[in-house]
Computed example of a mutant assay.
Amino acid sequence: MESGTKMDNNKKVWFITGASKGFGLSLVKQLLCAGELVAATSRNQQELIKAVNNKSTNFLPLQVDLVNESSVSLALQHTYEVFGQIDVVINNAGYGIGGAIEELSDQETRHAFDVNVFATMNVIRYVMPYLRKQRSGHIINISSIAGITGGIGWSVYAAAKHAIIGLSEVLAQDVKSLGIKVTVVAPGAFRTSFLTGESLTMTSNPIEEYEDVRESHKRYLKMNGEQVGDPQKAAASIIKIAGEPDAPLYLLLGGDAYNRALHKLDLLHYEIRQWEDVTCSTDF
Score class of each variant (00 low, 15 high):
125 R>M: 07
7 M>F: 04
218 K>V: 10
4 G>T: 10
132 R>E: 11
195 L>R: 15
92 N>G: 05
128 M>C: 03
143 S>W: 05
241 I>L: 10
187 P>C: 08
1 M>H: 03
280 C>Q: 10
108 E>M: 06
278 V>G: 04
210 Y>P: 10
31 L>P: 07
224 N>A: 15
68 N>V: 13
260 R>W: 07
230 D>C: 09
68 N>H: 13
150 G>S: 11
233 K>Q: 14
249 L>M: 15
191 R>Q: 13
249 L>G: 12
234 A>Q: 06
67 V>E: 03
54 N>H: 11
50 K>H: 14
141 N>R: 10
218 K>L: 10
131 L>C: 11
6 K>V: 12
57 T>Q: 10
233 K>D: 12
79 T>M: 03
37 L>N: 07
29 K>M: 10
157 Y>A: 02
9 N>C: 13
55 K>C: 04
148 I>M: 09
179 G>M: 07
138 H>I: 01
143 S>Q: 07
176 K>F: 13
58 N>Y: 06
164 I>Y: 04
266 D>W: 02
42 S>H: 06
147 G>N: 00
88 V>L: 13
162 H>R: 03
44 N>P: 05
266 D>I: 02
173 Q>C: 13
8 D>C: 13
175 V>N: 11
213 V>K: 03
223 M>S: 13
279 T>F: 06
84 G>D: 00
280 C>Y: 12
51 A>V: 10
189 A>V: 11
186 A>I: 01
115 V>N: 00
115 V>H: 00
130 Y>D: 05
151 G>P: 00
172 A>M: 12
105 S>V: 04
193 S>E: 15
264 K>R: 02
42 S>K: 06
204 S>D: 11
191 R>S: 14
216 S>V: 09
147 G>R: 01
131 L>D: 05
187 P>K: 06
71 S>W: 01
153 G>H: 02
133 K>T: 14
91 N>P: 08
215 E>F: 06
58 N>H: 14
192 T>Y: 05
59 F>W: 07
153 G>N: 04
43 R>F: 05
144 S>V: 07
